[in-house]
Design a binder for these strands. Structure first.
Lengths: 235, 235
DNA sequence: AATATTTCCGTACACTGTACGAGAATAGTC
DNA sequence: GACTATTCTCGTACAGTGTACGGAAATATT
């Protein structure tokens, strides 16, 4: 096993790492390089493109060599999540206005997920507590310091915030993906119009008839995030 | 092709259906039965257990026979989503208090997702507008009637609400799944304690030291949902 | 009876994650 | 320098995936 070890019964041993003994062949690759290649692949071609063979090819390794750096694919996905979490600034100063700070955190998370559109889907199934995620959590907890929420409540708030952002951006991405294929979008519009015209969906018909000005996803996100955070009890 | 047709360039043709000509061999199965079998499988063993072979076996068909009822697996998944959406009551009377009605809708969605734990994950990638989903959307729009939001804004609210619930329940499920494997949970607790003890995570250490009383997921959900909805502009 | 149409499904193929184990490279010991 | 223990590399192999293809069976129309 390579220096930053991982396998074993204990799932969190992944992040602790074990020292190399010195003995044995030197590793030709690195966990970071492999993870970065996997992330690049997911960014460019989606999560489905991340296959062990593709990642290995990208990094110049044999397929089975990857298993010296991560015990299985699931672990590689967790590494990917924590890897991109490293893009979140974890040490910028806080304003002291915890609501503003929390909103900024939400916007940072959204930006990250837009940069890595596979992230919302990856987060729905996984809970990752790697070093980068923890550093960011630490920052969020610091932001919540002025609130007098107890420990569990603070952790809840962070969890919920992340869940909310993932849910929102997931939808946002699905929406924009549909919009990028103009044929699809038109077909959907036609379908909705047909449904609205069937007489059984008067509210939908009304909603489609009175569209209002189009909303930018950014504005919508901000509005919902603000409502969510402004409504939080200070404990 | 079987009566409720689906294939084609137009994705929404799925839901429209085409009449059988009468000519040709009679279908031995039905789209509904196949979908129900797939849903039962996902409920019992998770989304990964839903393979074309397993579904076919469950329903007593040859594998390739499924392709007469759904052009591909992605379509089967969309059918599954709309199938369970049919469990949402779409015609119960509304109270007229749109905030209360909207909260009730959120709770219904959460209950549905808890009954079908694969649903949040399935919704992250997919946007489904089958008849059942549309019926429920119609109801949500009716609930929003007293607000004077324009059509686009109403649709946004529903989208966001669904995204929020999916995000929350996704986390809720991950949490409870971790709690069900006691070894895992203990290992994670030990890991977090170790991280908290490293001196670089003082806020985390403090949060773990002052746990407060445990929060039920139900109560947390209600609190966040209330905040979200109470904060909505009436337009 | 012939024909057109539709469904049923066995076979086959490319692709997936990964178990196994043989070989290569390194460090420590004599 | 030879030997040994250890560690990493990766070719091969296998079970499992979605689904393309095409022949056989069943039905309604002619």
């Amino acid at each position: 096993m390579v220096s930053h070890d991982g396998a074993g019964v204990d799932p969190q041993q992944l992040w602790l790492g074990t020292a190399r003994t010195g003995r044995g062949r030197k590793p030709a690759f690195s966990r970071a390089a492999i993870t970065a290649a996997a992330v690049a692949l997911a960014d460019a071609e989606g999560l489905d493109a991340v296959t062990m063979r593709r990642v290995a090819a990208e990094v110049g390794a044999g397929v089975m060599s990857l298993y010296s750096y991560a015990p299985d694919k699931e672990t590689l996905l967790e590494l990917m999540v924590d890897h991109v979490s490293g893009e979140l600034p974890a040490d910028e100063p806080l304003t002291g206005d915890w609501r503003a700070d929390l909103k900024a955190i939400g916007h940072l998370q959204r930006a990250l997920m837009l940069r890595h559109p596979w992230l919302p889907a990856a987060l729905t199934t996984r809970r990752t507590l790697g070093p980068h995620a923890l550093a960011f959590l630490e920052r969020a907890l610091a932001a919540l310091r002025p609130t007098r929420l107890d420990g569990a409540a603070k952790l809840e708030v962070f969890s919920q915030l992340t869940g909310f952002v993932a849910g929102h951006v997931g939808y946002e991405i699905a929406q924009s993906a549909a919009a990028e294929a103009p044929g699809r979008a038109a077909a959907e519009a036609r379908y909705l119009a047909a449904v609205a015209a069937d007489g059984h969906h008067p509210e939908l018909a009304a909603a489609l008839a009175a569209p209002g000005r189009p909303l930018t996803p950014e504005a919508t996100f901000t509005r919902f995030l603000d409502r969510l955070i402004d409504g939080l009890d200070t404990g």
